[in-house]
């Protein structure tokens, strides 16, 4: 059931992209998302696809893996596509009963679907090439300036680290409990929505209990090792900007400049 979930999953190989500074990668991903919303032509998107393809190739993550990340949100993409298709006013090119499809709607829907697809692919590339721990280190470091305004940067990052760390554990646990209940004849796959929801009880109760138990144990273990938040904490891994980071930043700047130029033209 969860074997196909790749969002938030790390693909551990050694590549120039994996070795980039996490802060740089996060910033680039953000700008990449902005760039997607600046583009309003198919040639523009073609350019992004080319850029993304090259990046994925360098990252040594199989394209198959990046595309698999789309599967869970296929539904959302579809809904967005349909809403955009039906709700955009403009020149009508097709009618069926009360359904009217406009040229603008078709265009808008197509763009939105492409945007979302590329957005997910881009962001999954970030998580695929950055281990969760390093990623949150990066986030913490980026949030530091906001500490002055009372933002608990370290605590937020720690919470994220823990949450990310426990996703696979909880999925494993879910699978185990599901199997245990299946061997007692439970059926999670058939029936209507109501009976399916009811069938989840034997899964959710043990899962919650074990999640709470784990949280409790973790808090205990952290306290036993004198954890007390971010004050005066030093790190084992120091983040350093290397030559590769400058190269990546330069290449990305060129990419973004190209997008801007496209936009102005």
């Amino acid at each position: 059931m969860f074997k196909n979930l790749t969002i938030g999953q790390h693909y551990p190989v050694d590549s120039p992209i994996h070795n980039l500074d996490p802060r740089l990668k996060i910033i680039m991903t953000f700008i990449f998302i902005i760039s997607l919303f600046l583009i309003e032509s198919f040639t523009g998107f073609l350019f992004v696809v080319a850029f993304l393809t090259v990046t994925i190739t360098i990252s040594k993550v199989p394209v198959k893996f990046v595309i698999k990340g789309l599967r869970p949100i296929l539904f959302i993409i579809l809904i967005t596509f349909i809403i955009n298709l039906l709700m955009t006013p403009g020149r009508v090119i097709f009618t069926l009963g009360f359904i009217k499809i406009t040229e603008e709607g078709l265009r808008q829907a197509g763009f939105m679907a492409i945007r979302l697809t590329l957005l997910i692919m881009g962001t999954s590339l970030l998580t695929l090439t950055t281990s969760p721990i390093i990623l949150t280190d990066g986030i913490e470091s980026l949030l530091k300036p906001f500490k002055r305004f009372g933002l608990p940067a370290h605590e937020l990052a720690m919470m994220m680290t823990i949450a990310l760390r426990f996703i696979p554990t909880l999925m494993e646990e879910t699978e185990k409990i599901m199997k245990a209940q299946k061997s007692r004849g439970a059926d999670f796959e058939s029936g209507n929505i109501i009976s399916r929801a009811k069938n989840l009880v034997p899964l959710l109760v043990p899962l919650f209990i074990s999640a709470f138990r784990r949280a409790d144990e973790l808090a205990m273990a952290m306290e036993a090792r004198c954890y007390r938040g971010g004050e005066n904490r030093t790190r084992m891994r120091q983040m350093k900007i290397l030559k590769g980071d400058y190269v990546a930043a330069f290449v990305f700047a060129v990419y973004f400049a190209a997008i801007i130029v496209f936009k102005i033209w």
């Binding site: 004849g185 034997p202 074990s210």
Partner: peptide
């Protein structure tokens, strides 16, 4: 083929022992 998992106590979920044991037969 009845299978009892490693640490099977983590599969318990009902309010009472009897109800929990009944889960399997109910599914039959």
């Amino acid at each position: 083929v009845g299978l009892v998992f490693q640490y099977p106590e983590y599969q318990l979920f009902e309010e009472t022992v009897a109800k929990d044991v009944a889960f399997g037969p109910m599914n039959l």
